Simulated scan of single mutants.
Amino acid sequence: MRALWSLALAAFWLGSGWAQTLTLYTSEILADVNALVEAFRRDNPGVQVQVFRSGTGEVVAKLRAELEAGNPQPDLIWFANPEVFADLARRNLLRRVPPTVQGYPLRYAYQGGLYYEVRLLYNVVAVNTSRVSTPPQTWADLAKPAYRGLLAMPDPNFSGAALITVGTLAQRLGFAFFERLKANGLAIEQSNPVLQQKLARGEYGLAITTDFGVRQEIAKGAPLAALYPRDGGILVPTPMAVTAWSKNPELASRFLRFLLSPQAQALFAERGYYPVMPGAPKPKGAPEQVLALGGVTADEGTLRRFSELFGLRR
């Protein structure tokens, strides 16, 4: 009876135009976002979630254009550029959501709950095992002649994860590392999904890319492996925040907290991500523990040098 009443109430809200609506701007994989949205809507009948999804660069550009026009739209933002979140926090444009979920690691509730990690992902070296029999062991190994013409990565102007990889490796190995990769034939694809599909088809032998995406391709039968280099996988911050201008801040906060629930954390693991909550199941085939390098976003000068080196449009 309760289920029937919930369905009837949802139909009434929708038919009357009273449905509560959230708008989410994100760089996350759309199929993964949709799975989470549908799980949230099952627990919140009558709620609609409108999603704008693109690469981090395009999401940030859209958000900045709306802010400059004085008409920002999203209730929630979720993408891989922590510096943008820090800037919005300085301008008092994020709503504080108190970190009240029991057991949540407080180091991921940035600035006391202005923005949150809701799951963890790493940039790794993905290997097509049918093309590469002796994989690299460290990030520096990628510049070895044995891997000439085999390696690709996404465009950091489009991919936030790639932007963080460029910043992290430039800081640790120097920008000359990318010059060596260029000389060794490093190719640039627009996005992680495009790159991972080409890697799965054997167009490349190696890729600098996201670990969860590699696991998703492996689940489809691709001959891939996710290699966490000995010097560490690059932890890619991809925070979520409720915006200060949100028309439905309480509902938006509920969605954020839902992503930390056992149900949502299990969904993340099923789709190849490391959950952020302790005790949640790990993704199938993933190491129990990962040596993590803290991700550093490439600054404007480093991104400009990288783009000029590889002839990328900005």
Results as ranks from 00 to 15, higher is better:
residue 1 M to V: 14
residue 1 M to A: 14
residue 4 L to P: 03
residue 6 S to M: 13
residue 7 L to I: 12
residue 8 A to F: 12
residue 9 L to K: 14
residue 12 F to T: 12
residue 14 L to E: 15
residue 21 T to S: 14
residue 37 V to T: 04
residue 39 A to L: 12
residue 50 Q to W: 07
residue 54 S to I: 00
residue 59 V to P: 03
residue 65 A to Q: 15
residue 70 G to Y: 08
residue 70 G to A: 06
residue 79 F to N: 01
residue 81 N to M: 11
residue 84 V to C: 02
residue 88 L to V: 05
residue 89 A to V: 08
residue 92 N to C: 06
residue 94 L to A: 00
residue 98 P to G: 05
residue 98 P to M: 07
residue 99 P to F: 03
residue 100 T to L: 14
residue 115 Y to P: 00
residue 119 R to H: 14
residue 130 S to P: 04
residue 133 S to K: 15
residue 153 M to F: 11
residue 153 M to G: 04
residue 159 S to R: 00
residue 162 A to R: 01
residue 168 T to Q: 06
residue 172 R to L: 13
residue 172 R to P: 04
residue 180 R to M: 11
residue 195 L to A: 10
residue 199 L to R: 02
residue 211 D to Q: 12
residue 212 F to A: 15
residue 225 A to E: 11
residue 231 D to G: 04
residue 234 I to W: 03
residue 239 P to A: 05
residue 240 M to R: 02
residue 247 K to Q: 15
residue 248 N to W: 09
residue 256 L to A: 05
residue 258 F to P: 05
residue 260 L to F: 00
residue 260 L to H: 00
residue 263 Q to H: 13
residue 266 A to L: 06
residue 267 L to G: 14
residue 273 Y to Q: 03
residue 273 Y to M: 05
residue 275 P to K: 01
residue 277 M to H: 06
residue 285 G to D: 10
residue 292 A to P: 07
residue 296 V to F: 04
residue 296 V to Y: 03
residue 300 E to W: 07
residue 305 R to N: 11
residue 309 L to V: 08
residue 313 R to K: 15
